Structure formats: structure tokens, C-alpha cells
Simulated assay, not measured.
Amino acid sequence: MPELTVVVPTFNEAANVAAVVEAVDRALAGVDWELMFVDDDSPDGTAERARDIAQADRRVRCVQRVGRRGLSSACVEGMLASSAPCLAVMDGDLQHDPALLRPMLDTLRGGQTDIVVGSRHVAGGGVGDFSAQRQGISRLATRLSRAVLKADLTDPMSGFFMLTRPALMGCLRGGVSGIGYKILVDLFASAPRPLRFVELPYTFRSRQAGESKLDSKVVWDYLILLADKLVGRYVPVRFLAFSAVGGLGVGVHLVTLALVFRGLGVDFVSAQVIATLVAMTFNYVVNNSLTYRDRRRRGWRFLTGWLSFALACSVGAFANVGIAAWLFQRQTFWVVSALSGVLVGAVWNYAVTSVYTWRK
């Protein structure tokens, strides 16, 4: 049984696989280790490249996930697929320095630490060639994480860390969500007791090959993760995201109605129908891209999904109006009546589309 498993989540990192294996081998000389690539079915052949190397080196393993995406969930699956008592997570683009793995392991061997975090913000660390904009975003994300963290980490955005198996299992049973990219925040926020941690400095390096996976959807995933940690035990986080998109859809509806009715001179009823279809389509596209990113519909299924979404939301609209009218007729304050109708419609739309439009 290896003492240490290094989990490397990958997507389109075929050009870096061999270099990662070589770097880990140099860094962990004399250690019984294994390297676990967890690949989200990369079209560039990352999984195939990892398996080719594994044929010659039994310390290299590959878990290929088909139909699933997400860095955090990939890390969790990789760690659970290992039997090692110590578990590390690092990126597959060589921006994390594998030379830090040995000091991390030595720290865990002392028995007084649950998790060792590679930090860019303690003395001796650095962010490398981060742009001013990216540094600003990182600082903002760090401040937002304070709302859910149970530790005074200097670099909660780090994706480079090592922890013991008991610490991992405690966090998993504490409710790790596996949402998005910031698995370290998820672990600390889910721990049933404060984790004993040590931060070791490292300098973030430039990518060796391939392209960065960071985009605007990473920001969305991070906000959803924070929301899940704050209120997820009371309200499903997907419902919150679904409702937020619905709020934006109201704005789209009003803007479209104004343009068609006031700007183009179309009669009100026709303009209302057009605005409803536009808003409904907007809600479907955004929810398909963000709220149900892990169940995204593509190709022909995208069109059939729109049909089922439109049908469900049409029924939800009738329920909204019906409940509001029924309460108002019974002398309920008009604001309460309206909000009750909106809530019933929103719950209906979320429940039905979750089951039929974006079913697993």
C-alpha cells in the first residue's frame, strides 16, 4: 500500500502528463507513492496518455469519468479510490511545485497536523506572473471565503494541499458538496471540527503546456459553493440559482416588452407573448449553462429540453396566477397574495424541470 497518493484532476492536459510523472518521481524519491490522474473524459487523449505511462509504471493510475465534470468532485473521487493514509491534490499543469510534496508529507508524519496547505501568501511564497486583475479577483474571493471558513487561512484559494485520510473522511461526512473548483474551501467549511493546519510557502509557476480552464463560470461555481455552505442545509442551492436566473428573466421580459410594445408599436397582447417567449428562452439557456452545468443538454436534446422547460413554466405561470387570485379573493393583502403565487410558481418550475428537463 502506498503511503501517499497524489491526485491530479485533469481536462485536456495530455501534453503535461509525462512531465507531471517525472516531476513527482524526482520530488518523492524514497517515498512509497502513487499518482492518480482523474480525467473528465478529455477529448485530447489525456486519459489514454496516462494509461500508456501506467503500463510501464504501476505507481501511475487513471480514473476516467464519462459524463461528469468538476475539479472538486474529481478530487474527491480520486482520493476515495486510493487506500493511502496521506492524500495530496495538485494541478496537472505544473503550476504547483511538486518539490513541496516532500515537506508536506514530513509535516503530516509528525502527527500534529490534519492538512498542509501550499500557500502563495505566507513569507517565501508568491503569485508568480499573476496579472493585477487576477490578483484582485483572488483577494476578493479570499475575503468572501471568510463567511464559511473555520480557519484563518492566508490562501484558501489554493488548490495545492495534502491531508490525512481521517481528516478527509470527517470532511466528507460533514457535507462536502463537491461544487466547482475550490475544493480546499469546501473541505475546511465542511469539517466537523476545526482542522489542524500548517501552511508552507510556494511560488505559483507559469503553465507549461495547454490552456487555462479559468472562465466566468468558475466565478459562478464559487458563488454557488459559498451559498451552499451558508444556507444549503435549509434550501437547495440549485433552487437559489434557479430563482436568481428567474429574477434576471423578469428583467429580460420587461425590457423585451418595452422594445416590442413601445418601440415597435406591436399590440400589447402580442408583445406580451413575444416577451414571455424571449424571457423563457433566456431562463432556459442560462440555467442550462450554469445552474445545471453538470447535466447540460446539447444538440437535439437542447431543443427538446427547451420544449419541456417551456411547458413546465407555462403550467407554473397558471399556478402562480391561480394561487394569487385565490388568496386575494379571500381578503389576503395583495402583496402577500402576489408573493405566494410567485413562490408556488417558482417551486413548481424548479421541481418539474429538475425531474424532466435536467433529469440525471
Rank of each mutant, 00 (worst) to 15 (best):
T5Q: 06
V8C: 04
F11M: 06
N12M: 10
N16K: 01
V21N: 04
E22Q: 09
A23Y: 11
V24M: 02
L28F: 12
L28I: 08
D32H: 07
D32C: 00
V38K: 06
P43C: 04
A50F: 12
A54N: 12
D57H: 08
R59C: 11
R65P: 10
L71I: 13
E77K: 02
S82F: 01
S83V: 08
A84D: 11
C86P: 00
L87I: 10
L87C: 04
L87D: 11
D93I: 00
L94W: 05
L94C: 08
H96V: 07
H96C: 09
A99L: 04
A99Q: 12
R102W: 14
P103S: 05
M104E: 01
T107A: 11
L108Q: 06
R109V: 11
G110H: 08
Q112T: 14
Q112Y: 12
T113G: 05
I115Y: 09
S119I: 06
A123L: 09
A123K: 07
V127Y: 09
G128A: 05
D129S: 07
A132E: 15
A132G: 10
S138K: 07
R139D: 15
R143M: 11
R143N: 12
T154W: 06
S158V: 03
S158H: 07
L163I: 09
P166R: 05
M169F: 12
G170H: 10
V176Y: 03
S177F: 09
I183R: 00
L184D: 12
S190C: 07
R196E: 14
L200Q: 13
P201G: 07
P201R: 03
T203K: 03
T203M: 01
R207A: 07
A209H: 13
A209M: 03
G210Q: 07
S212D: 15
K213A: 14
L214Y: 15
S216D: 14
V218W: 10
V219R: 00
W220R: 00
D221I: 00
Y222V: 06
L225W: 12
L225C: 05
R233W: 15
Y234G: 02
V235Y: 09
V235M: 02
V235S: 02
P236F: 05
P236G: 01
F239H: 06
H253P: 02
V255H: 05
V255T: 13
T256F: 09
A258L: 04
A258V: 08
F261H: 15
R262I: 06
R262E: 15
G265N: 08
A271G: 15
V273D: 08
A275P: 00
V285E: 09
N287F: 09
N288G: 10
S289Q: 13
L290S: 04
L290G: 03
R296I: 14
R298M: 13
G299T: 13
W300K: 06
S308Q: 11
A312F: 07
A312N: 04
S314H: 13
S314V: 08
V315L: 11
A317F: 15
F318K: 03
I323D: 00
W326R: 02
Q329V: 04
F333P: 08
V335L: 13
V336A: 13
A338C: 05
A338Y: 15
S340G: 15
S340V: 06
L343M: 09
L343N: 04
L343W: 12
L343A: 14
V344Y: 00
V347N: 03
Y350V: 00
A351K: 04
V352H: 05
T353M: 03
W358M: 03
